[in-house]
Amino acid sequence: MTEEEHIAEQIRRNVIITTIDKIYNWGRRSSVWPMGFGLACCAFEMICAAASRFDFARFGMEMMRPTPRQADLLIVSGTVTKKMAPQVVRLYDQMPEPKYVLAMGACAISGGPFKDTYNAVNGIDTYLPVDVYVPGCPPRPEALLEGFIKLHQMIEGQTILTSPWYRKEVEREMPVPILGPRGLVLPGEGHE
């Protein structure tokens, strides 16, 4: 092919993809279903964000599924402790693609007021890939809604061509840590 024909071919392919992308992403971002997974104090602000004053049903998110098999978004709200971390990672692995993680509150981002203690994990991004961080202790419901809007903008910017869940070479399953005698151990690694 000559260069002009090659460029025309590319443009034609991208135009089709942008229309498909637009419809695909519009459907996905208008109905993100969070998983009802509250760990600690931030969970209560999440429930308030679901209640009638700061409704998040107007974003299409009112269906909080208790089961990970039907959810799109894992809102990690609260301190993740070492005893609970294997369960969080296992729940993430059970969610079907496409899936997102939102770290809500200072404890989920970096350990919060309980950083560097013998039972708290310094942020859930040690074990899971996080897409949006919402800071605060606890963040107000309006801050959580701002986090959701950022997530929607991120979803709208994604395209099928480069999405990780349709590519075979990207590993999306996270290894589940094991409770060892002094802390958490990832499988395959020894003690340090």
Binding site: T117, Y118, N122, T126, R182, G183, L184, V185, H191, E192
Partner: peptide, 16 residues
């Protein structure tokens, strides 16, 4: 005699 950070964690080694 037990330190508050505990003795060994993989998470703290990676994120600090």
């Amino acid at each position: 005699d037990f330190p508050i950070e505990g003795y060994q964690t993989i998470g703290q080694e990676e994120s600090s």
